[in-house]
Design a protein around this nucleic acid. Sequence first.
RNA 1: GGCGAAUUGGUCAAGCGGCUAAGACGCCGCCCUCUCACGGCGGAAACAAGGGUUCGAUUCCCUUAUUCGUCACCA
Length: 484
Amino acid sequence: MKIRTRYAPSPTGKMHVGNLRSALYEFLIAKHEGGEFMLRIEDTDQERIVEGATEIIYRTLEKTGLIHDEGPDKDGGYGPYVQSERMKTGIYLKYAKELIDKGEAYYCFCDKERLDSLKTEVVEGKEITVYDKHCLSLSKEEVEKNLAEGKPYVIRQNIPNEGSTTFHDELYGDITVENSELDDMILIKTDGYPTYNFANVVDDHTMNITHVVRGNEYLSSSPKYQRLYDAFGWESPVYVHLPLITDENHKKLSKRSGHSSFEDLIEQGFVTEAVVNYIALLGWSPEDNREIFSLDELIKEFDYHRISKSPAVFDIVKLRWMNGEYIKAMDFDTYYEMAKPYIDEAVKTDVDKKKLAEWVKTRIEVFPDIKELIDFVDELPEYDIDMYTHKKMKTNAESSLLVLKEILPILEEQDDYSNDALYSTLLNYVEEKGYKNGFVLWPVRTAVSGKQMTPAGATELMELFGKDETIKRIKAGIAKLERA
RNA sequence: GGCGAAUUGGUCAAGCGGCUAAGACGCCGCCCUCUCACGGCGGAAACAAGGGUUCGAUUCCCUUAUUCGUCACCA
């Protein structure tokens, strides 16, 4: 049988890294086996719906390459794919009634006050309500009467207080919970919408989902879902619960912490493929030691049995490293297209921007890093003359002044400002004087850039600037040193 | 608090009864070098604790500790 997985988000905001990884794993599990990956929108909580959230989901899936085979925009014969639309077909109520007939569910007319009175105060500020099955004992006549009167109701699952329920997870093994721990959860809400718990089970079954892949937070409620499958007499799907992704403080990633949303990462200059690659490795590892994977390679290698059970910290530092690897591996044209906006922003002067792009390619991890690497181009920054002192080069302010003064006339005489020509000119001078290379090149680079480190050597910088600007900067350096 | 799960260096992680306990990021050092970066080489750094089982436990079992999750007419 063909594997079918689904990504079933609720449209409540941006997609954070955890959501994206769920989608990724669901996609990979299906595609690794040549199966189908489906998108279903779970919008049964009408109050929490955020406008535009569905569009973000589409956009993100498309951009990351997690292309769904079916979904609201791609009918595959199992539609509708949006739960609010499915509800209109009456499917949830129909199945709920089926459970009522079987004695596995019942109408409940309890109002808020009564429910509140059931609350038991527990430490840590948590209030826990265990429903007391009050309405289970209602007679058929009472139920009919209430319904006829139009009294608001919910439908609850009837879970016995005796015994225990076990379900099997591919990663975590068998998990057993005492039935007495399980509350009679609500299947159909007062507003007629199904709860997640119920819609999820009904949909996964009716949409032929073979592998239910979802976050770890559902692990402890899964026995309830198992009971639902059993009550219906349906075969339960293969469960794969995914370990959580946490922040550096080991707290579950929240949509609020800005930087953890996929869109924000892209805005911060990360490459889509790098993000996908990185999160694939958060909770899964291949058989060998490889770390760089394209999506196609992931599909090929992804064996879900190798997903780990323990939570993983989202490490932005390692993501940055990986992003740098992707940038280095890019062909120049693709890279330049992405880097250009950042270069344009940092440099207004008319210089060879491709040159700048080449220089920084191996020096950045994310694109915004470019800015500070080339901020000396438009204007010579203010710098301290201490910068002329370099222990290893054996330079200091005095020696630098000497060198710059001697070199200035030579540079003024020279017309060929290509890197090669400049380099041999300077080396000639070095040889003539019996200096070390750095003894000369360090002060020149300092004068020309005003920075401790630059993405290119002295002569390359001079080539970029051209004769006039170079002379100007060297003179400025001399003046600065003389003043001191 | 009940229930469930997890626990290998700072982080991601391999390991699936016998190993000097991989690898990667980060950190440190060296080399390369007209600075930085890239690249190359090397280093420091871990099996939560205590009991069992076993000839032998990081690997299996139990207890404790810690962390996380969950206990909604949210998903």
